[in-house]
Design a protein around this nucleic acid. Structure first.
Length: 271
DNA sequence: AGTATAACCTGTCTGC
DNA sequence: TGCAGACAGGTTATAC
């Protein structure tokens, strides 16, 4: 569901509302997730100190713990008063203001992990972050750092979605970044022309930033923490547009499969 | 070592 | 109307 922009938006919205609050009680549906969810009871009495984002994870820092959410494909985090639990409500935090944070996830591809700060002083050291690559909107993502990792026999579409290289880019924004860069999704990373590398680098940053400023993409599931929608989907050039005509060159937009995922691209202007 | 595939789940849509 | 199959924004263990 959410890629970097959507997760960043949720983090920002929650930061302004929930930091400084104390957790009164917690709820867990008991449903099975890919990693077991346990220990939430120990959050009782903990105050939320700050929120972080790494890749597509949201980290809640409390006095003694790191509480880490991943929304998977269909997860969302809602914040409000008297939220009602439904079939797919899996975790709820009741805070001292009388409000609740509710994690819902029909497919249960998401995750909720709790780590003790006595074991991990810095959230960046958490084991789930071990193999993550560079944050594309951070200052450390320079053109030089991008060139350093821009190698391999993968196609460029798979590369962009490989979180061990550059993290946070999912299927939608990978397609949109390649379109804006006029690059074929089939292009092998080692064969990317020199002149295209700068363009690709800039488009990674531009597309993700544009998505954030447009409130993220709302396709089926994604909503903000107050239930409202983003509007980035109105700015898609190729994603979900197979059979339509490219607005730049009037070529045909096709859907193909790469590594088990749909890729949408203009057969004419992406070479 | 690096890359591709299968598996984890439920809901929705398409075509017969 | 029913049903099978494909597909969906992600990650990761396993296989090659």
């Amino acid at each position: 569901m959410p890629e970097l922009p959507e997760v960043e938006i949720i983090k920002r919205e929650l930061s302004s509302q929930i930091v400084g609050s104390t957790i009164n009680s917690t709820f867990y549906s008991g449903k099975k997730f890919k990693r077991p969810i346990f220990g939430l009871d120990s959050l009782k009495g903990q105050t939320i100190i700050s929120l972080k984002r790494r890749n597509k994870y949201i980290v809640f820092e409390t006095n003694d713990y790191w509480l880490v959410f991943h929304l998977g494909m269909t997860g969302n985090l809602l914040f409000g008063t008297s939220l009602e639990k439904g079939k797919h409500s899996h975790v709820m935090l009741n805070i001292d203001s009388g409000q609740q944070l509710l994690f819902q996830d029909p497919r249960r591809f998401g995750s909720v992990d709790l780590y003790s700060k006595s074991n991990y002083k810095n959230y960046l050291m958490l084991p789930i972050f071990n193999k993550l690559g560079i944050e594309p909107l951070s200052n450390s993502f320079t053109f030089e750092s991008f060139i350093d990792i821009l190698h391999g026999k993968q196609n460029i579409k798979s590369f962009l979605m490989d979180s061990s290289k550059v993290c946070g880019i999912g299927n939608i924004y990978a397609c949109e970044i390649l379109f804006r860069s006029s690059l074929s999704p089939f292009l092998i990373v080692d064969n990317i022309p020199e002149t295209s590398k700068t363009i690709l680098y800039m488009n990674i940053k531009n597309v993700l930033s544009l998505a954030i400023s447009n409130g993220g993409s709302s396709i089926s599931d994604f909503v903000h923490t107050n239930g409202t929608s983003g509007k980035m989907q109105d700015f898609y050039n190729v994603y979900g547009k197979n059979g339509e005509i490219c607005k730049i060159c009037h070529g045909l937009i096709e859907r193909i499969k790469q590594n088990g995922r749909s890729t949408y691209y203009c057969i004419n202007c992406q070479k």
